[in-house]
């Protein structure tokens, strides 16, 4: 049912797109044909919860070192002082760690939300924040399905803080600090395509060690951060109610109709105006 309506919206939208040539809204990439984005694969079966990723991340980006350790039953959160955290979950297969940071979505809600292009999906894959453009409206925070962007509420020159996959290091030909320093090799950096292949292989080779899913393969239309884990996502702190389509598509229907409204409504209004020109209603007449 939802599909029918969406199709209708799209049909309506198509009129709009044809009317507004050069519209920058582009169709979602067909699954399996993703561009060669870089991504990160995190393997919960390897992670030992040593917090090295947290510590090197803090060092690399100039934040204070973490003061608390992963504890089962406590959800530690990223903040304006911390771009990544590792949490511990008690699951049906014992203790499982899950690292949390920006997911670097293929089609990020934060980027679609941003009206200044401060949030930006680079061609390499990382989603970065550019302070010289941002006006601090926090619409990216409202829109991100993972609640990733954080805001410096107590600054007169506040920044949006979130993981940027160490974009500066990637440009220098290095890999993200967490991936480089993880002693357990739980964090692998590579192209998204390779990482998915690698994840499939791990699941295939050791079916009794891994649960059969790759978190981030389809969620929110695919993310750059991918996860494999010994337990189903619901047990180790993942959001499981998210859509498998890209979040920007939720508001695309609305945006597609805008050009048609701009063409049709004025014509319509002008038409009525001309048609009613000669009947000036007066008191007592209720012809709205």
């Amino acid at each position: 049912m939802g599909l029918d309506r969406r199709n209708f919206m799209k049909a309506l939208g198509l009129t709009g797109v044809t009317l507004a040539a050069g519209n920058s809204l582009k169709a979602a990439p067909v699954k399996g044909e993703e561009v060669e984005f870089f991504g990160v694969l995190y393997d919960s079966t390897r992670c030992v919860g040593c917090q090295t990723c947290e510590i090197t991340c803090a060092e690399t980006h100039g934040f204070p070192a973490p003061t608390d350790a992963p504890t089962a039953g406590v959800i530690r959160k990223t903040s304006e002082n911390c771009r990544t955290v590792v949490n511990l979950f008690n699951t049906s297969k014992g203790e499982v760690y899950t690292k949390n940071q920006c997911m670097h979505c293929n089609e990020p809600a934060c980027v679609a939300a941003c009206l200044t292009q401060a949030m930006y999906k680079t061609k390499e894959g990382p989603v970065i924040w550019r302070g010289n453009k941002c006006m601090g409206c926090r619409y990216c925070m409202v829109s991100c399905p993972f609640d990733v962007p954080k805001f410096e509420y107590f600054s007169s020159n506040p920044r949006i803080i979130k993981c940027d996959m160490c974009y500066d290091r990637i440009k220098e030909g290095k890999i993200p600090a967490c991936a480089e320093n993880c002693p357990a090799e739980a964090i692998t950096f590579g192209t998204r395509r390779d990482l998915i292949r690698e994840a499939r292989k791990r699941i295939h080779d050791q079916p009794d060690v891994y649960a059969d899913f790759i978190y981030g393969e389809d969620e929110v239309g695919g993310t750059g951060e991918l996860y494999v884990s010994p337990v189903p996502p619901i047990e180790s702190g993942f959001k499981t109610t998210l859509l498998n389509e890209s979040y920007p598509s939720l508001s695309k229907g609305f945006l597609y109709t805008v050009p048609s409204v701009f063409v049709l409504v004025p014509v319509f209004l002008l038409g009525i105006h001309e048609a009613t020109k000669n009947n000036h209603h007066n008191e007592g007449d209720d012809n709205e």
């Binding site: 679609a112 009206l115 006006m135």
Partner: peptide, 15 residues
């Protein structure tokens, strides 16, 4: 920024 046109986030509803 979103007004003078050096950064048009045209996919944004807020824009």
């Amino acid at each position: 920024n979103p007004i003078i046109g050096n950064s048009f986030g045209t996919n944004s509803v807020l824009f």
